[in-house]
Design a protein around this nucleic acid. Structure first.
Lengths: 349, 349
DNA sequence: CTGAAAGCGCTAACAT
DNA sequence: ATGTTAGCGCTTTCAG
């Protein structure tokens, strides 16, 4: 027994069957008689047997390991890019529910990916943004026949591409306000991923242009704003007579800042000003009034990606290449949290 | 070559040595001639060889895997307890720098721990709070001869116990304010881990009592406060003539709330009111004025715990039991970030 | 449906 | 200093 752990051998002996039968039971092979199966399951329970993951992999089968690839950079640099804490917890829940393990790894170059793959031989890999846009990575994975997944897919030029649809996200947020009669909609980017902010603004512009508004020429702040920056900007926008009737805030800090300025200026929210935040935090749920959000549920999207990878693996023993992955149906790309900061636009501006 | 990966065998053949010599090179064994070593290293580089982690474990040696045990619960429940995103990133950096892998796992009961250990056979395990106080877990690890580490240790009743010294943390924060002449120091707990908040308050009380103050009888809020709650409370405290001259805020939200109330009431910060937050976030660094913090660098503490585990393993081939772990010298238990919200107490209250 | 044999890639232990 | 041998625990063959 080597290090004293209970092995498949122990279970086999105790149950009076061969190792192979035990193996079939733990791998849910159909070719096991009911009696043998129940006996083995009984012994497994009694002995508290747990298969050794490394040995399992060595047998040449699945590794029951999923890899989540994070972009390179220090903790400080990556701060706020992705809600890694939620993704970790929700991904863990999805994986361990299926008997899978989950491991995160920072990947900068192709060789990092190659090392991780040969060293760990995962059954699948989730390319977290912005790695999901690196064609080289997809190629390498395809070459190795490894299942890959992204948080979501976007539709562009009639094609389906990997990556979050940030433009669509910005568009949807804007549409939500337009629905309520707003035309003078402002957009303030928060600090975080600048690239993603830009894309959201594209969508915002598109939606406003289609609605015949020109607000996107005056009321956009592309540069990242923190609380103080948002406050400064909001004062400039909201004090004049001609002002936005609704503002989209990229982050919690921006939303709180705008809300504060509205208070200062005596603007009632949402009567005089509607407010929509693009991330969902506890602070927003508890402000006065609580702030409505349209956000990407990245934790759920990540868990969904893990599930798809697992299903792809379970499918036929062999792991299907990335192309055959089922679409991200598990969770919506964005979720609206109606709270108390969206109302119909006032008649005149 | 099985799945097409380069194995130690390929390297050995190419370098004209035995597998064992290659193994010795990658494991930094001293018993290799310079010529053989350089030849092997050359081939490894050329072929891009990376050892297979599973096979390495199977060889009976180290697994080069560290496990971080998180308490059970959903992502929502655990929100804000621990800065898992930072810990993940900083831990990853520490581990991968040493050729180690890092895996997080939620552990609720003993059997979860047992499963994780037999399934993954990690070389060491970090018990994240509050798991670090579960004696059963320590016992199990000791029984298995597995190295364990916590984020930090605390000193209590003359004994060294696992776990963060939350009381000492609260005490240090209070002392910092007392140093500046404050006696009327308030404490507002944020939402998050209630148990930890309580302990901090213990330390806070102790420090004030020793300084001969009775402020801790009036100006303590044990119950978790969010932004709105903090604002309500702060209004009650700061409007009267007899009021705290300094406030310790458990979280960012609380600190920002207090600051807002100070503004409302025309209290200058820090002239009329000093403010110290117990967590360090970008929002605090950017408020007006930026808020001073005394915080636990949990990311760094976690990375330090990983390093200690790795060193313990490297030490003598066999992994040393937990008792022999070196203390957490890598990083201080708390870090003071002087910004602009602490000043000497006003003369009269 | 079940068992026996062979081997995954690596490293301890033992030789040399 | 280096090579040889024997597994680690499991799963894939391939036979019954």
């Amino acid at each position: 027994m080597g290090r004293g752990n209970i092995t498949i051998e122990d279970v086999a002996r105790e149950a009076g069957v061969s190792r192979q039968t035990v193996s079939r039971v733990i791998n849910r092979s159909p070719n096991v008689s009911g009696s043998a199966r129940s006996r083995v399951e009984q012994v497994i329970e009694t002995l508290g047997y747990v298969p050794n993951a490394a040995a399992r992999r060595m047998g040449g089968a699945r590794s029951y390991l999923l890899l989540a690839a994070i972009e390179g950079g220090t903790a400080g640099e990556l701060a706020g890019r992705l809600p890694l804490d939620r993704m970790l917890l929700e991904g863990l829940a999805a994986c361990s529910g299926q008997g899978y393990h989950l491991m995160f790894k920072q990947i900068s170059q192709e060789r990092d990916l190659a090392s991780a793959l040969t060293s760990l031989t995962p059954d699948g890999i989730v390319l977290l943004p912005p790695l999901d846009e690196r064609a080289e990575f997809h190629h390498m994975l395809e070459r190795r026949g490894l299942a890959a997944a992204c948080l979501a897919e976007r539709h562009e030029h009639g094609r389906v591409l990997p990556g979050l649809d940030e433009a669509g996200f910005g568009e949807a947020a804007t549409a939500k306000l337009i629905e309520h009669g707003h035309r003078q909609v402002g957009f303030i980017a928060g600090d975080g991923d600048i690239v993603r902010s830009r894309r959201r603004i594209e969508g915002y512009r598109r939606a406003l242009a289609e609605a015949g508004s020109r607000a996107h020429r005056h009321f956009v702040s592309e540069e990242p704003r923190d609380l103080a920056g948002a406050i400064d900007l909001a004062r400039g926008w909201l004090a004049p007579t001609i002002r936005p009737t609704a503002i989209i805030a990229g982050t919690e800090a921006v939303a709180l800042g705008v809300l504060q300025v509205a208070h200062e200026l005596g603007l009632a929210v949402p009567r005089d000003l509607s407010l929509l935040a693009l991330e969902d935090t506890s602070g927003l749920a508890r402000s006065h009034p609580p702030i409505s959000t349209l956000h990407q549920p990245l934790g759920a999207l990540f868990a969904g990606a893990c599930m798809r990878l697992i299903e792809a693996g379970e499918g036929g023993g062999a792991i299907r290449p990335q192309g055959t992955l089922t679409p991200a149906i598990a969770s919506a790309a964005h979720v609206f949290m109606p709270r108390a900061t969206i109302a119909r636009a006032p008649r005149a501006v």
